[in-house]
C-alpha cells in the first residue's frame, strides 16, 4: 500500500539547535466513508500512528484519524544535542509497519 517514505531534515546542526523535520509517505488513507460503484462502503484502511524517535527516545508522535489527507505529511521540530539517527515509523491499520531512518551530524 505505502511506498518509500520521504524525509527532509538537515544533515548537520549545532548542538542544542531546534531543527525542522518534514515527512511524507504515499498512502491512500481510505477513510471508510467512500462507496464503490455498487454502493458498498469501501472499508477503512489508514495509517493510524506515526512516531519519530531519536536514538530510542520519542521525539514526536501522532495518532491519525481518517480525516488526515491521503499521503500523510507532517512537519515538526526536534532539538538535537548530539549526533545520532532519527527513526520514523508509520503503523498501518492492517498491521504493516513502514520504517525509515536518517542520521544527523552535530558539530
Amino acid at each position: 500500500m505505502a511506498s518509500k517514505p520521504r524525509i527532509k531534515l538537515p544533515k548537520k546542526a549545532s548542538a542544542g539547535e531546534v531543527i525542522t523535520i518534514k515527512t511524507l509517505i504515499s498512502h491512500e488513507m481510505e477513510s471508510g466513508q467512500r462507496k464503490d460503484k455498487d454502493g458498498n462502503a469501501i472499508p477503512r484502511q489508514i495509517i493510524n500512528k506515526f512516531t519519530c524517535a531519536f536514538e530510542g527516545a520519542t521525539v514526536f508522535e501522532c495518532d491519525l484519524d481518517p480525516a488526515i489527507s491521503a499521503n500523510p505529511f507532517f512537519e515538526f521540530t526536534a532539538k538535537v544535542n548530539e549526533s545520532g539517527t532519527f527513526k520514523f515509523t508509520w503503523v498501518d491499520d492492517d498491521g504493516s509497519v513502514y520504517e525509515a531512518e536518517q542520521a544527523i551530524e552535530v558539530a
Binding site: I19, T58, F60, C62, I68, F74, F76, A78, K79
Partner: peptide, 20 residues
C-alpha cells in the same frame, strides 16, 4: 482529526499536516 504528542526533545510545540 489527529493528536500530536510532543516531548522535551521536540524543542518546540509546533506541527503541520494536511487534513480533509
Amino acid at each position: 482529526v489527529c493528536t500530536f504528542r510532543f516531548s522535551e526533545l521536540s524543542g518546540a510545540a509546533t506541527a503541520t499536516t494536511r487534513m480533509r
